[in-house]
């Protein structure tokens, strides 16, 4: 047993790893929320439900059609993205000029429908999804055992997050997106199809949740409840980070995963509440959030 200052390094690094994995999912989900919020000024309450739907589509694709994990990584985000596009086009757009409160309630209703439908269809106990053969096994490090699949999640989600960040900050498409966030009327006046950009942005933000769902399927049990529990934590993370910056959303997501992992090691009783407690402290000290821009 390797110990340092009385701390069991095996246990600690194991919990840190779990924390980083949770953090990867928090980062993907809060990134999606932040992108959608930037243009539409709404919070998508269905983000968690769509993450759950992503996991279920991956499970069904494997179970009924034999579509493997790697294909699902491409197909599922596309399908979930299409659901998002339809949601935006036919449900959210008609009420875009009303109080944003209504959009929020609408997405909450959609979340209830999706969760209810999957509970009805599959029951509330979890289904398991096998880890793809290529990523089975693990690597033995000096102080811990690192399962390959878990390493993959962390690398893949960080790549996707920072790829998205780069796209938004450094490319022309990203410039449109940022301009749309600043002043949609002006952008429309320049002849850019703003409604199309809004639809695609919503689709993309939601697709990120679908992607997270596929990646989560082999580590967590695929269950109708998986999204709602996750989403409330992600809300707290969004409040902690503030929605001012894309990079902030990613960093806060990963960071809070690590904080949660550390708590699981040092004081397991508080592991479910720690992120909410951090939120309370942040609200007391810096109400706008760590990366928040508004007063």
């Amino acid at each position: 047993m390797v110990t340092f200052l009385g701390i069991n390094l095996f246990g600690l690094s194991g919990q840190l790893l779990v924390g980083l994995i949770n953090g990867s999912f928090y980062a993907l989900l809060s990134l999606g929320l932040a992108i959608i919020f930037g243009l539409l000024k709404i919070i998508n309450f269905a983000q968690g439900a769509l993450y759950m739907v992503g996991a279920f589509i991956a499970w069904m694709a494997l179970q009924y059609m034999g579509i493997n994990y790697w294909a699902a990584l491409i197909i599922v985000p596309l399908l979930v993205g299409v659901i998002g596009v339809l949601m935006e086009r036919y449900l959210l757009r008609p009420i875009a000029n009303e109080d944003h409160l209504y959009s929020l309630l609408l997405t909450f209703g959609i979340a209830l429908i999706l969760q209810g439908a999957f509970t009805h269809g599959f029951g509330s106990s979890g289904l398991s999804y096998a880890i793809p053969a290529e990523l089975k096994g693990g690597t033995k490090l000096p102080f811990m055992y690192l399962p390959n699949y878990r390493a993959w999640i962390i690398v893949a989600s960080i790549t996707v997050c920072f790829g998205t960040w780069w796209m938004i900050e450094k490319t022309k498409l990203g410039a449109y997106l940022r301009a749309g966030t600043e002043n949609p009327q002006m952008m429309q006046a320049f002849g850019i199809n703003v409604p199309l950009i809004v639809t695609l942005t919503f689709g993309f933000g939601v697709a990120l949740a679908g992607l997270a769902g596929v990646m989560a399927a082999p580590v967590y049990a695929v269950s109708p409840e998986m999204g709602s529990n996750m989403l409330i934590v992600v809300f707290a993370i969004v409040v902690i980070g503030g929605m001012g910056s894309i990079g902030g959303a990613i960093l806060t997501g990963l960071g809070m995963g690590v904080v949660e992992g550390l708590t699981k090691y040092f004081y397991p009783e508080a592991s479910t509440t720690i992120i909410f407690l951090v939120m309370v402290v942040v609200l007391l000290l810096k109400p706008a959030g760590l990366f928040g821009k508004e007063a």
Binding site: I113, Q115, G116, H120
Partner: peptide, 20 residues
């Protein structure tokens, strides 16, 4: 009874879209 949550969700959506 099994459809309770779906129906509640649907009422939400309908209220927001048509019956604010």
């Amino acid at each position: 009874g099994n459809y309770l949550h779906i129906i509640m969700g649907a009422i939400f959506v309908i209220c927001v879209l048509a019956f604010r």
